[in-house]
Each structure stands twice: as structure tokens, then as C-alpha cells.
Write a protein that binds this DNA or RNA. Sequence first.
RNA 1: GCCCACAUAGCUCAGGGGCAGAGCACUUCCUUGGUAAGGAAGAGGUCCCCGGUUCAAAUCCGGGUGUGGGCUCCA
Length: 637
Amino acid sequence: MPKITLPDGSARNYDAATSGAEIAASIGKSLARDAVAVRINGELRDLTRVIDDDASVEILTRDSDDGLELLRHDAAHVLAEAVKELWPDTQVTIGPAIENGFYYDFSREEPFTESDLEAIEARMKDIVDRDEAIEREVWERDKAAEFFRGIGEEYKAEIIEGIPSDEDLTLYRQGDFIDLCRGPHLPSTGKLGKAFKLTHVSGAYWRGDSNNEMLQRIYGTAWSNEKQLRKYLNMLEEAEKRDHRRLGRVMDLFHFQEEAPGAVFWHPKGWNLFQSLINFMREQQNAAGYQEINTPEIMSRALWESSGHWNTFGDNMFTTETVDGRQYAIKPMNCPGHVQVFKQGITSYRDLPVRLAEFGKCHRYEPSGALHGMMRVRAFTQDDAHIFCTPEQITDESIAVCDLILGIYRSFGFDDIRIKFADRPEARVGEDAVWDQAEAALIKALEAAGLEYTHNPGEGAFYGPKLEFVLRDAIGRDWQCGTLQVDLNMPGRLGASYIGEDGNKHLPVMLHRAIFGSLERFMGILIEHHAGNLPLWLAPVQVKVLTITSEADEYADEVAAELRARGIRAETDLRNEKISYKVREHSVAKVPVQFAVGQRELENRTVAMRRLGSKKQQVMPLDEAIENLLSEVESRA
RNA sequence: GCCCACAUAGCUCAGGGGCAGAGCACUUCCUUGGUAAGGAAGAGGUCCCCGGUUCAAAUCCGGGUGUGGGCUCCA
């Protein structure tokens, strides 16, 4: 006689063993319809799982986070079933739910094509219509391995052999398709519904290891209902409209070309924006006690060998050899250069912390497949800084860096920021005791600053643990930009020291920090976040002065000259075109403010001001318009 | 680096073994207009590069480069 306790605290008694499905049905019709799984004493289970003892039970519907994840996992299984029906020789491997959808990795000779996707999707919908029951079976490990090997599923057999022998293996059967899976699953394929879509194919290494076979991966998206699916597909379209590569062209900011893969050709407007970012950062970090320096872009191979970079990243460094056979590397990062500056002269503990900053242009020979617009380039500019301090100063300095980073992100309109703590990777330099100390110091700073964070195990740099600052953009995508790393290794490797209170030499702690990360990447994110509609203080052309008739040409020139004299970036458009044509063109180019001037404005020394995105315009005296704009620029709104 | 796809005018793209196409942009002319495309004419090409097949290749095949979507990587 199981007693079932529901999440609202109410309890029900059942005469005999029951199941999630029965409980849902006894509560209500709509719950029975929307139920996809059940949580029994905190464990996610199939709706049909027998409950024969007292338990706390929560019915999960398709709209819940867990329910949706289950739905996506089932979509992956239905995908695999469809592929096996269409091409029985294909081997299945794994197919998990992921953010927004699912994928399944297959092994087969022929790659899937776009038209295959249509056929597979149609077959998946047939399987949903068939409403096949999805049944859980417990198998013995060796028998299961033998079974899968018997039907030619070598990958499944390999997975089973990796599962501990004392663990029960579960297989899920739907129609003629049977798959190894921990579960849980929906009660039947019909429950999946049809709010899914296959999106693309790609390659993926077996078990994520580039030494293994390349499998064929099919990606799809799945949602609890059609409306959600449409919303997601619209978001993808929106993302495409915001693509910085497209906007970079229409805004005339930059271009790429074949002769310099992964390197930006900056156009005047793009470079203007780049300089605005640098100027802002310079102002902020100078106020925070940083000193700006500049270090050589080409330095001897020997320096990179002693820093450890040659050994760890040598394949990804651009190198150069002179006619007389000297070997140099183009800097992939600024740290070793900064240590050289710190090492000049003798530093006392009284001088610490020393905060050295550089807008350093770095080059990394990134794998060709990794390049992606401005988000991943081979030539980029870091807003890099290194803080040399005593161990006692780590916490305060780290807190200050966190404050600086979060404040700067807010200035650019990013309010949703997550922090990840990444600790020691497998490939690293330095003693474990030193790592213990560095990791503890970073956590202590996070806690002292009262910041929430998540743990990212094994993702630290090879010389120290790090904090990663991830910002979420206007359409919900996450970007990792800033970083703060505690390094107790590099100063020793490169021979940096300071004289302590005791008169002896000590190793300084080195904090690495970047806020934009890469200026190029940050600008790409900024463009996409604002969909190109940059705030006034950043827009490369802030005001465009448009003439309505040629009689106003001279006045337009005067207006633009006045704007520029007051520090506003302004250009004129005196072309023999209709005003609506000009308005459209500069709106498309994302100019935030347009001043239209014609006969009336000329006579009254006014301007008709139109803001990007607005359909209205406001006529006001030129001086007043300038004052308004200046205060907006000043406030960085 | 690996898998798949793509590469044609400044841009977006159509075409396709036998004369290189459209729209927008550009130039000139007409038009001087009141807030997201006024009209006409003109100019513009190594069809990514190198080979091969063929009487003939932008088109078919092979290799390379670049780009896109992923995988791996990201100091």
C-alpha cells in the first residue's frame, strides 16, 4: 500500500503498486497528457516505472526543464531509429540532449547530405505517428555486449565494455529499434510531438578525441510545442541579421581577405571604434592604478623556451628566422615581455603592487578550422595587464580586478555576467603545493567580493588557475571575454624578484588579467549585442547632416563643422538625392543621429533631428541639439 | 588539423560543356525634393588558383587556397 507524497505536501494512498502514469491520471486528464517522466524520491524515472513502496513523487511535464531535456533525448533516439530504418548498415553511437536540441553521432562510409536530412525528418515524423511504446529492459552486461556485436553495433559494444560489471544495463526498445541507454524515456514515441527540426550535419570525433574515427553527427532542435520551436527559429534568424561579419560590411568597419587569413583589415570607421574602445579602457585602468607600457612583438626563441610557451604552444606560434640564422617568435602573448620590464632595476616590497598594462598585438597560428570572423583570429590585440604583488596582496588585487571588469562590462550594456573558476589542468608546470596556494587565493578573493561562480575543473592555464568572465548578450548567447589568473610559476621561470622587508629576494606573484580579452572579438560581440545600433558614444559616425535641397549645402557644411568643433564625429551628405533616400541609406548603415537641413532650417538655424530606429524627427536650434548630444555622449548612455 | 558544404560584377545571388546574367551599389544626365529606395543611360568579369579530360571547361574530374557549419584546440 504505497503512500505517495506529492510536491505540494499532499499525500495519497494506493491499494497496490502504482506508477507515475497512474498517479498523473488520478490527478487529472491534462496532467496525464502532458506528463513525460516522474521523479521518485529525487530520481528521474520512466513514467511506467513501478512504485511499490512509500515515495515522494513529482510528475514532470513536457514544459519543465527536465521534461524538455527528456524530450530532446527522445528526439535523438527517434532520429537514430529513423536513420537505422533508412540505412540499416549505419552504426549508431551516442545521442544526447544539448542546449536547444539534440544530436546523434553515426558511423557510416557515406556522409549525410542536406536532402538526407529532409528524408530523415519525414521518417522521424512517421515514427511519432506510429506512437511506438518505449520499453525499458534490464540486461546482463556480457549478453548485451554480445547482442550489439551480433547486430554489427561495435561502438555500442565498446561502450558496454566500459561500464562497471556490477552495474545493471538498461536497453530501451521502441518498435524494431533497440538502444543502450540509461534513460529515462517518454512512454511512447507519440509523446515527442513534432516541434523538432533537423538543422545541420557535421563531423565529430568518436569520444571527442581527435585521434579517433570521425563520425557523422546530425544536429536538431526540439521543443515542447510548435510555438517554442518557431520562437527558436526566429532567434536564429535574428542572430544571422546581427552577424558581425555582415554588419561589419554594411557599416563599413573592416574586411578580411585571403592573403591574411584570420587578420583584420580595419577601415576608417572600424578603426575609429577600435580606438574608442582603447581610449575608454585606458581611462578606466589608469584610474585604477595601472601603468601602460609597450613591449616588442618579435623576441628571441630562447625567451619563449624559458617561459615554457615554446614547449607547450610552439606549434601555434608564428616564427621567423633571419638571414644569419637567428630564431625569433612573434609574440603570442605579452606576459614574458612584461616580466622583462618588471625585472629592470631592483623592486622593493614597498613598490608593490606594480600593475603593467599593454594593448599588445599578438599573433597565434590558430588551426585553420578554428577561425571565425573576428571571434577567433590569428592576429589580435589584447588589453593585457600583469599585476606583480606579494602573496598577501592577491586577495585585494583580485577583488579590485573583479570590480573593474564588472564595471566596464556594465558600461557597454552587458549586465548578465557569469564567473567560472577554472583549476589545474593535467598538463601544467609547477608544484602541487604552489597550485593549492594559487587556487585557494583566487577562491578567497571571489568569496571576499561576494561573487557567485561556477566550477570549471581542469580548465586552468598551464601556469595557474583562472577566473573566466562570461557575458550574456541581448539574444542570450554567452561569450567568454575577461580573465584573471593567479600565476606563481612564471615569475620564477623568468627570474623576477623583489626585495622583501627582511632584505632578501622574494618571488612576486603575477596576476594576469584581460578585460576585453581580444579587442577584435569584443568588438564583434559588441556589434552583435547591439545589432549594430551602437550607443552614441561609440558610434564611429555620430551625426550625419543631410541636405534636403542643394540650397542648404553651405549651411550643412557649417553644421558639420560646428559639430566637429564641439567634439562630435559628423559627416555631411550633400548628394543630389531625395531626403528619404538619404535617410534610408544612413539608417541601414546604423548612423545613430541624422540632421536633415533644408530651406526652413537654414533660415532659422535649426536642425531636424532624427534618431536611428525612430520614425519621428524633432526640429530644434542647432545649439540645443549639440548640447543634448554632448550630454548623452558624456553619460555613455 | 579533421568531416561536410560553398567560392560567378563592389554586395546579394541566378545560370551552367559552345556570346557572362539579374537586382542593389557605382558613373553620367534629367530631377531640388520634407524623412527608410524618383527616372533614364552607361561602365563594370582571370566565373578563387593550378593541373587534367575534351574540338571546346566558368560548367566535368583531381589538387591547392579561402570562407561557412561543426569536431579537436584556444597560453
